[in-house]
Design a protein around this nucleic acid. Structure first.
Lengths: 201, 201, 201, 201
DNA sequence: AATGAATGAGATTTCATTCAT
DNA sequence: CATGAATGAAATCTCATTCAT
């Protein structure tokens, strides 16, 4: 049993690399097999079809990520600290495994719409980490309450995600995600604090 | 015998519809031809190949969008008003032509990495509309200066874009982009105002 | 009527050039039209289809060639002189219009087998010029009689033709067809003279 | 599961038959596949593309032919005997495998100009068998020396080749290649013997 | 379980030919 | 007569998936 899972992970790691470099549609199953060092047919002992590789990859990796995020964030109690940490963790994640990041950013975004029967619950869970933090912030009076949590969690994720994407696409060495994390934390928190902006708008 | 440009636009409109519904990779050139009411071969009188349909589509539509945004935003002088307007225009754009929005959001994001020799200058121009607004805001002392314009323009675009994407993907009638515009304007402006957050972080 | 024929010849000249450079199958009717300076559709006012361009081209040009050869050769009476002249005329023909030569050599050879309903009578007539010369030579006792005219006319044509082909393909400036004509005349005549070779074979 | 080479040869044999009957350009890859009893896609496991079938076919068959000719001819020492043998072998080759002959005669002649990057070294080697025989003949004083070997090898090949082609195209049962071989040997040898023809020319 | 040769459906693209102007 | 935009049949080639070994 352990062995079987090893082989599956081995294929997934190969798939991440290949999908990141060629894109899901341009990647051939044979490419993944070669990168994984197995025969083409072996892929089909572990995955239903090509789509299933992408879905499984996402499920498995996302589970790891969710655990990691939950574990780290639950150690803090202050919502602002939690938000700061989330941002740091997110950019660290991107930096650590660019290939995985690229697959998530580009391929899954596009694919979830076309992969049959795939409801992307893990992504929703991920967004909800932010949602939960904001909620606590509102409950504790640290954040304004004149916005919807569902809107804001998407907006925050979108901001971080787009920064991550542009960081991946650009190869500018001056584009440093740690600095970006500091900037973004400051700005996002500023945007959420209970400060009246009514007079300028 | 239609004017050459008419025929090209007719195919582009069909392509937007088809690509939005099926996705670029799942869409057949024959689908586009049928939707446009022309023969398959006619496509190739106007476009080099399938990729070229997507690129041309983007170039032409993006030009329109850039003009429209520039024209509207240049009528205002106050950076905060400009930012507010940008957000409104962006969501209006998404609402007006969901198919186009979907193609831009999903297909082009994925494709721009693989379409050969396609440097997406128009997208950079679009981002720079936000960049320019922020810059003016900083110069006029309306916004903080402790962040990079290039970071912030990406973040703002990412936030709006992700909201738009989720709006398109969800069909929740309660998810109203006009309300979102109001919320986001308030929050983004709050995030940029020259207010010290140092004490909470 | 004269005008109509002019237009047809104009297309034929263009076709010779295009077919010589690209080969019949790789040449597009549109290429021929462009080279001729007419619209694609105009071609079909003068020719039934693409095959018909090649056939007509051959018929018209071959008629000219046959007349020219007959006229020149009939001025001589001696079969050896006639043969010498034929060889000279043939290489001169090749040198004069390489494009036409190339079309005849490569395209027609291949095409006559696949062009529907085309029995290549003109080519037979051309071979028979040689046949007639040999026949006269035999009758006048200048040539041996222990070979078949039909065999020999093909062999002689083949020798000259292959030399022409290689001359066209090579661009060796030292490969001079006039010298070749001299050599070949000497050798062919030697091969036909009534000299017994029985002892060496 | 056949040996890889078996499968390739099987496809080549099918291709020879199909190309001979329909011509390279009119033959569909699907025709070859069907004749070979394999799926269309299988062709592409062994050949890069349709052109590659023709080139591979030529290379493989030509190698066989060159070996066979070299082996047989090297058993003789006398140049005249060698030439006689060459002629016999050539016509035998044509008779033995008419389909292959047809492909070589018609298709390759036409194609070699267009198949990209294909320098037909094997054909040059084949011509040089004749060249070598003539050279030996000259060195041993059996043949005249007042002609160029490079000219004569082409002429001899051309004569034989055109006879072969006409034999294939005609279906005349009286057209017998063995008789032709005898005639041609006599004539070619006569043409090369050191006999002065200066007085008749 | 693993292999990898074989499959064959399916998509892009070409281009000879037509016909309304 | 001439045009050239439009047609659409047809062919090459790809690649996810299967299955005998």
């Amino acid at each position: 049993m352990k062995r079987k899972n090893d082989r599956k992970l081995q294929i997934i790691e190969a798939a991440i690399k290949i999908f990141a470099h060629k894109g899901f549609y341009h990647a051939k199953v044979a490419d993944v097999a070669k990168e994984a060092g197995v025969a083409d047919g072996t892929i089909y002992l572990h995955f239903k079809n090509k789509d299933d590789i992408l879905i499984s990859l996402f499920e498995i990796k996302m589970e790891e990520i969710l655990s990691r995020f939950h574990a780290a964030i639950n150690k803090k109690t202050n919502p602002i600290k939690k938000l700061k940490l989330f941002i740091e963790l997110y950019f660290k994640l991107i930096e650590e495994d660019q290939n995985l990041a690229e697959v998530f950013q580009v391929e899954l975004r596009q694919s979830s719409k076309f992969l049959k029967d795939y409801h992307n619950q893990k992504f929703i869970d991920f967004l909800n980490i932010i949602g939960q933090i904001i909620k606590e912030g509102q409950q504790q009076g640290e954040f304004r309450s004149d916005f919807h949590i569902n809107t804001m969690k998407i907006a925050i994720f979108g901001a971080l995600d787009e920064l991550a994407r542009q960081w991946i696409l650009s190869n500018d060495p001056k584009f440093n995600l740690r600095d970006v994390a500091v900037e973004m934390t400051r700005t996002i928190v500023a945007g959420l604090l209970p400060i009246n902006t009514g007079d300028v708008l």
